[in-house]
C-alpha cells in the first residue's frame, strides 16, 4: 500500500528527514516512535503534503502511484488521512458543513454521487456515537473553542466519515486524559479492516496499549534506527529513547 524509499525532507535550510525507508502493507498498523525533534511529525506531515516541507530526495508510492506528485487534496481523495497533532480552528464554518463538503468532494473525485444534507445526517449519527460526541458539536464551527480532547475526537470523527485507506495519526494521544484516549483508540480500532492501514505517530507507548501495532519503528535524527514488533514499544517505555538513540544523544 505504502512504500517509502530514502525519503529526505527539509524545512527552510534544515534537513529533518534524512533517508526514511518504510513499507506498510494493507491491514497493518505501524507505530512510529521517537524523541522530540526526531522527525516523526515531519514524516506524517510530508505524507499528507504539508507545504511547509520540501522533499529533497527519495520516493513515496501509494497504491502504485507517486504520492509526492499529488496535491494534498488529491492524496485525501485517494484515501490518505492525517489526524493532526494540532487540529486547526476554522471559525465561521460549521463542522457539519465542512464534513459534508469534504465527504462530497471525495465522492465526486471518485466519480460517486454527492450526498444531500439529510442523508448525510444519517451517516453522521452512527459516526458520532462511535466517538461519543454530541450532535451539538456538528453545528459549532470547526474546532473553534473545542477542548483538546474534543479536537482530537473531532479528528477521529472526520476519519470515521471519510473512511481512509491509510490513516496517519500524528501524536493523537498528546494532551488526552485516559478516558479520551480510550474513546479515540476505540474509534481507530473500529475502523480497522484488512484493506486499511494505520500509521500511529507517538512519543509514548501508552496509546499502543489500546491500538496494538504490528510493527514499531524508532525514529531518531531523521532516520529509522530500530524496527521491531509491539514488544519494542514496551522496551522503549522501560528503558527510554537513549537506549536506541544513545549514539546520537551522546553526540548532541
Amino acid at each position: 500500500m505504502l512504500k517509502i524509499k530514502e525519503l529526505r525532507a527539509t524545512v527552510g535550510d534544515k534537513e529533518i528527514l534524512k533517508g526514511i525507508d518504510l513499507t506498510v502493507k494493507p491491514g497493518e498498523v505501524h507505530a512510529v516512535m521517537g524523541p522530540n525533534g526526531s522527525g516523526k511529525s515531519t514524516l506524517a506531515q510530508v505524507l499528507a503534503g504539508h507545504p511547509a516541507y520540501t522533499v529533497t530526495g527519495g520516493s513515496v508510492e501509494f497504491d502504485g502511484e507517486d504520492l509526492l506528485e499529488m496535491d494534498p487534496e488529491v492524496r485525501a481523495q485517494k484515501g490518505v488521512f492525517l489526524a493532526f497533532q494540532y487540529p486547526v480552528e476554522i471559525p465561521g464554518v460549521s463542522n457539519a458543513y465542512f464534513l459534508r463538503t469534504a465527504y462530497n468532494e471525495i465522492r465526486k473525485a471518485r466519480g460517486e454521487e454527492e450526498v444531500d444534507p439529510m442523508d448525510f445526517l444519517d451517516i453522521m449519527e452512527q459516526k458520532l456515537k462511535m466517538v461519543e460526541m454530541s450532535d451539538v458539536m456538528l453545528n459549532r464551527s470547526v474546532n473553534t473553542g473545542f477542548s483538546g480532547g474534543e479536537k482530537k475526537r473531532n479528528e477521529i470523527l472526520q476519519m470515521a466519515v471519510l473512511e481512509p485507506k491509510l490513516a496517519i495519526l500524528d501524536e493523537t494521544d498528546s494532551g488526552l486524559d485516559i478516558d479520551a484516549l480510550r474513546v479515540v483508540a476505540d474509534g481507530v480500532n473500529a475502523l480497522r479492516r484488512p484493506d486499511r492501514s494505520t500509521i500511529v505517530v507517538t512519543h509514548y507507548q501508552r496509546l499502543l496499549n489500546y491500538i496494538v501495532p504490528d510493527y514499531v519503528h524508532v525514529l531518531a535524527n531523521g532516520r529509522i534506527v530500530k524496527s521491531g514488533g509491539k514488544e519494542l514499544a514496551l522496551e522503549l517505555e522501560a528503558k527510554g529513547y537513549d537506549w536506541v538513540t544513545g549514539a546520537q544523544g551522546a553526540a548532541a
Binding site: A48, E73, F84, V88, I90, F98, E105
Partner: peptide, 10 residues
C-alpha cells in the same frame, strides 16, 4: 492545508 488534507480542493 487542513481543508485540503480532508479532500477539499484548493
Amino acid at each position: 492545508f487542513y481543508m485540503k488534507s480532508r479532500g477539499v480542493g484548493a
